[in-house]
Computed example of a mutant assay.
Amino acid sequence: MSSTLPMAAIFTRNKMIGWTSVMVSVQGWLSETPAQKEKAGTPAYFSVGMAVLALGLAYMPLFMPPAAGRGGQGSGTAAPGPVPS
């Protein structure tokens, strides 16, 4: 859960999922036992870092808004116009 929730926050850019992933990963890091530390492949603070990164990406449009005039351009794959007769 603590590894998939930040991915969902990154793909959806949802702030609520981002904050939830941060809280779940911090809680998992704080409740980690020494036996779990030895058994785990990566340290628990990596999941906290990933969750913070996901939260940062959710808030990125607030600090770096999209460029003006770039919206609505499309992909350039529109159907060709009518053939003049």
Rank of each mutant, 00 (worst) to 15 (best):
L55N: 03
P80G: 11
G49P: 00
Q73A: 08
T4W: 11
T42W: 07
L62S: 06
G72E: 11
S3D: 15
A8Q: 13
G49D: 02
V48Y: 01
G71Q: 08
F11G: 05
G69H: 08
L62H: 04
G18Q: 05
T42S: 11
S85Y: 07
G18F: 05
A44H: 09
M64I: 03
V83S: 07
T4E: 14
K39G: 12
R70A: 10
L55K: 03
Y59R: 13
Y45D: 03
P34S: 10
A68N: 04
A44E: 08
V52I: 12
F11I: 11
A58S: 14
F63L: 09
S31V: 09
N14L: 04
T12H: 10
G69F: 03
V52Y: 01
L55H: 00
I10T: 03
V24S: 06
A40Q: 10
S21E: 00
A68P: 05
E38I: 15
S85F: 07
M64W: 04
L53C: 02
G18S: 11
Y59H: 12
L30C: 09
L30Y: 09
L53W: 04
W29L: 13
M50Y: 02
T77Y: 12
P65A: 03
A44N: 09
S2Q: 15
T4Q: 15
T33C: 08
I17S: 07
V83H: 05
V52E: 02
M23I: 13
P84L: 11
W19E: 12
M23G: 05
L5P: 03
A79H: 10
R70V: 07
V22Y: 02
K15T: 12
F63H: 03
T77E: 12
W19H: 11
V48M: 02
G74T: 04
L62E: 11
V24G: 02
V24N: 09
W19F: 09
A54M: 04
G41T: 11
A51W: 00
S47W: 01
L57E: 14
T20E: 15
W29K: 08
E32G: 05
K39Y: 14
S31F: 08
S85H: 09
G18E: 03
Q36L: 13
P82F: 05
G18C: 08
E38R: 13
W19M: 10
P43C: 04
T33M: 06
S31C: 07
P34T: 08
M1F: 12
Y45M: 00
F63N: 05
L62V: 10
A78M: 10
S31E: 13
L62N: 05
M60S: 06
T77P: 01
S47T: 04
M1Y: 13
A58Y: 08
Q27I: 02
M50P: 00
P84R: 07
A54W: 01
G49F: 01
R13I: 00
V48P: 02
A67D: 03
T20D: 14
R13G: 01
A9N: 13
L30V: 12
E38Q: 15
K39E: 15
S31I: 08
K37T: 15
V24C: 08
M64G: 00
L30I: 13
S25H: 02
F46W: 03
A8Y: 15
T33P: 07
P84I: 06
P61G: 04
G41W: 15
M60P: 01
V24H: 10
G56L: 00
R13S: 09
Q73L: 12
T77C: 06
G72N: 08
G56H: 00
T4C: 14
A44M: 12
